[in-house]
């Protein structure tokens, strides 16, 4: 009874707060300070046509570095928490259809190509490392659906993941040496806006982010796939 009352009271309180925020909100007519700086000088500063990519990779580069670190931590914590027992149970899966298997063999290379295209063109068109990485991970989903017994080479994934993370930090440090600061993209020439080879380090860093996010999401998916029909390892020691 008290619980229901508390829930209703909380919801009414939050609703009132939101409603007053909503009434006060006015759509701005001019860009605010930092946003108008980004809009005005991104093309000149970085040579990137996509302002969002420039903000994600250069102006707020440290945020993005922290963000891929969080994703890496999530992925490794999950590998630890969902460890399966060594003795493999008999895994029974329903045979997937002929159509699905043929289509996946045909489509997976093109999906990977699309993912790579998206993150290579991150500084020119909508898209970038995160979107391309998600597309790469969805290629893995198609493989796993078509063939449930497909084993993911986690060794290769971890090598790609760690080397691209290492190179990302290295490129950031090169900005410290040759540019204006950590993760500054003007180490390479900025080139002309709208060309593939332009925007300094932004395409390179976005390729690395794409590989890193793609392998991390793939690892996440393969962990969830590997617990199907398996017993989890008991937690050793720890509070019960």
């Amino acid at each position: 009874m008290i619980r229901t009352f508390g829930i209703i009271l909380t919801l009414i309180g939050v609703a009132f707060l939101f409603f007053s925020l909503f009434l006060e909100y006015e759509t701005p007519l001019e860009l605010s300070g930092s946003a108008s700086y980004y809009a005005a000088s991104t093309a000149e500063d970085t040579g990137s046509a996509n302002l969002v990519s420039a903000i994600v990779v250069t102006y707020r580069g440290l945020d993005t570095l922290g963000e891929v670190t969080i994703l890496f931590l999530t992925s490794s914590i999950m590998s630890y928490m969902l460890k399966t027992k060594k003795a493999r149970n008999q895994r029974t899966f329903r045979e997937s259809s002929e159509l699905l298997r043929t289509a996946s063999a045909l489509l997976v290379p093109f999906i990977i190509l699309l993912g790579v295209f998206i993150f290579v063109h991150g500084h020119l068109s909508p898209g970038g490392g995160f979107q391309g990485g998600a597309v790469l991970a969805s290629a893995l989903v198609l493989l796993l659906v078509a063939d449930p017994l497909y084993t993911v080479q986690s060794r290769i994934l971890s090598v790609i993941e760690s080397s691209s993370g290492f190179l990302y930090v290295l490129l950031g440090l090169s900005g410290l040496l040759f540019g204006a600061g950590f993760l500054d993209s003007r180490v390479l020439p900025t080139g002309r806006v709208g060309e593939l080879f332009s925007a300094g380090l932004i395409p390179l860093i976005y390729i690395l982010i794409g590989l890193k996010v793609g392998t991390e999401l793939s690892n996440l998916l393969s962990v969830f796939h590997s617990v199907q029909g398996q017993d989890l390892m008991e937690d050793e020691g720890g509070a019960r």
């Binding site: 909508p126 991970a137 969805s138």
Partner: peptide, 21 residues
């Protein structure tokens, strides 16, 4: 468009797949 691509690829497909696993 950037946010739309991310939400469609990650929020609506990968998250749903993880839930179903």
């Amino acid at each position: 468009p950037d946010v739309a691509m991310t939400e469609a690829a990650i929020g609506s497909s990968l998250a749903t797949i993880i839930f179903f696993y």
